[in-house]
Nucleic acid binder design. Sequence first.
DNA 1: ACAAAAAATACAATCGATTGTACTAGTTCA
DNA 2: TGAACTAGTACAATCGATTGTATTTTTTGT
Lengths: 342, 342
Amino acid sequence: MENNLITIHDIAKALGIDSSTVSRALNNSNRVSLKTKKKIIDKANELGYQRNLLASNLRRNKTNTIGVIVPRISRYFFSSAISGIEKTAFEKGYNVIICQSLEQLEREENLINTLAANRVDGIIMSVSMETLNYNHLDGLKKNGTPIVIFDRHCDIPDRNNVLLDDFAGAFEATNHLIEEGCINIVHFSGPKNLNVYRNRLKGYKAALEKHEIPFRENLVLNSHLMQEDGITLAEKVLRLPESIDGIFSANDVAAIGAMQYLKQKGINIPKDIAMVGFSNGPTSAVMDPPLSTIDQSGGKMGELSANLLFEQLQIKPLERESKTIIVKPSLLIRESSKKKKK
Amino acid sequence: MENNLITIHDIAKALGIDSSTVSRALNNSNRVSLKTKKKIIDKANELGYQRNLLASNLRRNKTNTIGVIVPRISRYFFSSAISGIEKTAFEKGYNVIICQSLEQLEREENLINTLAANRVDGIIMSVSMETLNYNHLDGLKKNGTPIVIFDRHCDIPDRNNVLLDDFAGAFEATNHLIEEGCINIVHFSGPKNLNVYRNRLKGYKAALEKHEIPFRENLVLNSHLMQEDGITLAEKVLRLPESIDGIFSANDVAAIGAMQYLKQKGINIPKDIAMVGFSNGPTSAVMDPPLSTIDQSGGKMGELSANLLFEQLQIKPLERESKTIIVKPSLLIRESSKKKKK
DNA sequence: ACAAAAAATACAATCGATTGTACTAGTTCA
DNA sequence: TGAACTAGTACAATCGATTGTATTTTTTGT
């Protein structure tokens, strides 16, 4: 390729000085006189110089870039998290390389390698559903690249985590339903191998217990929590012997599917059945009635993850202590759960 | 930083050979014997070698990376577009650096510079709302970095565009409403300085014209098309002297806001007022009733943009001819517009 | 068996910026 | 005035991989 790009050597030659002086001037070193600095900067602008970060990063052994891996960019939670990360990184003068694993372990491994090969200074990731062990992160650890894992729990030593307090969220949601007068509350639960769903189930149980409502196994309905699942689950709900008056769904999507089905069957929400979801996806607020939900605040988790990473970057690899941040989610009360008209 | 990373020189030293041979072996050059190749690869794995792409890219003057700039990652259309770009790039062995301009020209300029400094091979972008001229792209042009601009129209010479045929989409939407029996159709329009909204308005007019329905200026309601705007607009609709029987909104969000208000006022959708939106956002399908809309297919536009970029990358800078691809959107007919019960 | 051709490997320059050290002016102060 | 500084620049090595050319080794053909 015909490469007309201007280098510091071109500037140096044009001014009859050494390239090291040009470099120092452009980095605003105080070893260069103001007069020469000005000359150099003017010439650089005149020639349209643009620093080659590849060369610079290679020499400095630092890229000012962090890598982010999420299962799927288009999922609302993740795109908000990315926004949060990007915002924080931008403020600190860092660039962000964003990748998606599409929930595939193999892709995740590839991405880790590529990011490492690109010498990113650190990585923030939410692991794929296929990821059961963390061997592919060992290489990074060896060369001192810090990692922050957010969203999904990761129980290996020396790892930085930013997690949502699923238990607390579920507890709050269920507690709210009870306080609105619900007794027979169904819980839509997700894949049991995922920590988050186990914890939401626990939160549900704990809230029942607090109010001395007996836990009934048959009121916990499992699925993958897709929209279609919501419909199927709602059917099941109507066929239960108990007369159900509340549903706490472990995510919004399933809750929305269920709401559609229930409304169609003439069930009034919240009067007959009150509903609370989990995630605060983009849809929940515009539903009819608007869905009460637990705000998973992706943006905030992204910011916290980035801050944690930058914190680690300022500590020498050997002196780092891993840290886990638990984010308390908040309950958003909307129409779908207001049984008591106030 | 203590840098223990393995280089080709370490491998060379360990085997008593030259680093150039190691480099060639790892690049599978046929100038290295199979025997040595195997020895080198084994040793590389043993030592946990990982190619330093900074050095490689610097030397080769090629990064195999493309940059993507969008106004906001968390917007559904953009995150789907990014997904499409990422998918295509991944298949071709390219990495993607994703950035968001947050609709600010200054940030957009910064990002362009950073991407250029990182020597990305090409850029795909959707320009910010503040962007009125394209001077900040001149530098890229000079050094032969191809750019593809998608989503928003860009009427400067030598630029690659991937656009939605807004006119056709709006025409189809309006035409559909008329065929469902609507006569007094309101159009929610957006900021007039944006090409897309002007074209959607034109499409609306053209459809009326085709059916010999007179165009009435007062049935075009302008706003920024936010959800709240939808509510305000719906109020206005009810106060119009004409009895409105259909609304074509230039985006989904405003349509959804309007639907909420209208339903609350006891208006039946679609029987009293039929509605069609534009975008196929994540929410439209789960509304009650589900909102008919124009599918903007971000994923497809992303793929097309990436393919166009890769096409340009294979042509020498001086021989490139710029190209514009127009994507025909498709109408998704859902309950909100089915006036005629079939 | 030996020259010529082919294969395999080594040498050395290079990409563009950074940075420790060495050098040359220009100041300061006794 | 001249020794001791200080400020400003230049020199040269370096980051890690790539690649054109030179050299050595092996193979081929007669």
